[in-house]
Design a protein around this nucleic acid. Structure first.
Lengths: 125, 125
DNA sequence: GGGAAAATGAAAACGATTGTCAAAACGCGT
DNA sequence: ACGCGTTTTGACAATCGTTTTCATTTTCCC
């Protein structure tokens, strides 16, 4: 829709890992854009609602976003140094989650999985 | 050590699911305690550092705590209505996480897994 | 071009959490 | 019980990410 939302999407797509709203705002301002922080937040919220970007929370409670290759259900392997993320799948995990949920009588079972580590290039430094 | 910390621990242990710092503060004040909010935060921070309680973030970014039966690595099956939590294990998930991590050259691989659903008693209402 | 509707951004509001600092509680040797 | 140094506590202010407000600007459609 809007130009601004597209700007934010591209800023995200051009980045390697998860970025916070504040990060993206700083990036865009640094490259000369006159975008406002509010608009960045709104764009990210809209993009996450349509499933175009993934959201997760850091341990500090900050929301971080990433434009994903696929809109299908998947998880991330994230480098805890440079925050580069690899999209991964885990059929075994999917099955396990629903199985353990129903075993305890839970319905509408969903799950979140995040895998963290230090990527090869960061480890070699 | 301190009496206050013990008070907070017991408040947590006496609860069924995950509670936020603010929840616990409200609970304690409601039952007549003169504890301060700052102290509740400090107690929870100390308890989480020793591994006596588990911490996770809600999608809204609020930190929630739970006194767990075991201090070993485990995950939770949480009711999204009443937030009651069941401690679960998933050897398959543990193996999968480290396997996928090392496959991509990541070291020091850790992971977070949370399973959500609606528990039987909440679903029947 | 004109006007309603949507988008924008600066600033204020908000809510969770943390920092500050003086008062209160505690430990402990006497 | 009595100081006295140390730790803990809690009211309050400060911080930080995020959301809301609202007036202005832009977009869209006729």
């Amino acid at each position: 829709m809007s130009t601004r939302r597209e700007t934010v999407r591209q800023a995200l797509t051009g980045s390697t890992g998860f970025r916070s709203a504040q990060d993206l705002y700083a990036d865009l301002r640094a490259e000369g854009s006159k975008i406002g922080l509010t608009t960045v937040y709104r764009a990210l919220q809209a993009l996450s609602e349509t499933g175009e970007v993934d959201v997760l929370r850091t341990n500090e409670g900050e929301a971080v976003y990433r434009a994903c290759d696929t809109e299908q259900h998947h998880h991330h392997l994230v480098c805890r140094v440079c925050s580069t993320a690899v999209e991964i799948e885990g059929p075994a995990v999917e099955a396990w989650a629903t199985e353990v949920g129903t075993r305890y009588g839970f319905t509408g079972v969903t799950h979140t999985v995040e895998v963290f580590g230090t990527c090869a290039s960061c480890a070699s430094r």
